[in-house]
Amino acid sequence: MTQAAEAPAVPSKPRTPWITRSGLAVPLILFALFAVLPPILVVSGETFLLTILTRIMIFAIAAVSLDLILGYGAMVSLGHAAFIGIGAYVVGIMAFHGVSDAFLQLLVVLLATGLFALVTGAISLKTSGVYFIMITLAFAQMAYFTTTSLAMYGGDDGLTLRVRSTVFGMSFLGDRITLYYIVFAALLGAFFLCRTLVASRFGRVLQGCRQSPLRMRALGFSPYRYQLVAYVIAGMLAGIAGALLANQIAFVSPAYMSWMRSGELIFMVVLGGMGTLYGAIIGAFAFIAAEEILSHFTHHWRVIFGPLLIIAVLFARGGLISLIFARRGSG
């Protein structure tokens, strides 16, 4: 995140370069880093970091999709991990039955998560505020308990993915660098899709609904329908993250959709800075990296991590990205 400070930062307000005005400076630097890191890591022999970075990007996809509904639509979903789990289970179950074609799997993942999002979203969006939080939690818990009772697919013990997804019958997702770049591409795709959505008329209506549903209704928009569409898109993107997670770990487990995971996704978004999309990526990075680094030092890492979270909230209003911009503004 220090690298962001080296961005073409100009304190004076007029005549800022396009890249700063577009708000793309930080994400582009992030993506450039993600793009060039693998060769560096391979050369320096730190290949295990690739695994962690891949995981960070997978959760970043889910976090970006959550930011779409949370940051722009004010829909605080405490059930977002359910989509990750469903995506993962679709891949796991299809592979279990010998269907490993990536495109077919992707299609079913999108259908399954889209349908789940449509049904649960249609019901959940009748509520708002903390009631929305709890009802999304309820649906995620139902999905969680359903998978734990799937005795045929290992129930609680989870399901080993015997074959990773294949493209035209070829399997190359087992290769870590290939998987890394596929996840990277998915993250790029998710980010720019959400960005385009947010900037579009659809996105403006969505944000309008967040600020004042009443006014939007007066203008002739139905907030409910816009919110539902956003919810379904976010669910499908998180489903893709789940499919990638299944391929990375080669294992699917109900644990992927526990409510703690949903909570962690919210933390990633809030920690990074919500309503920016790339804040979610930074949040995912900070969260997973902090967990990895701290747990390496002590098994009591939560004693440190907990207060860090509190401090982050108290002193970094608007998330970690606010630190970047605050520094830029003052210096």
Partner: peptide, 30 residues
């Protein structure tokens, strides 16, 4: 802790109090 969070958004409150859960659970364990 809490006093500083009353005028914050619900999400900030959730985040900070979750941090507190981690801390106290682990502290009790120690």
């Amino acid at each position: 802790v809490f006093r500083h969070l009353y005028d914050r958004s619900h999400l900030d409150q959730v985040l900070a109090t979750f941090g507190l859960i981690l801390f106290v659970n682990e502290g009790v364990r120690m």
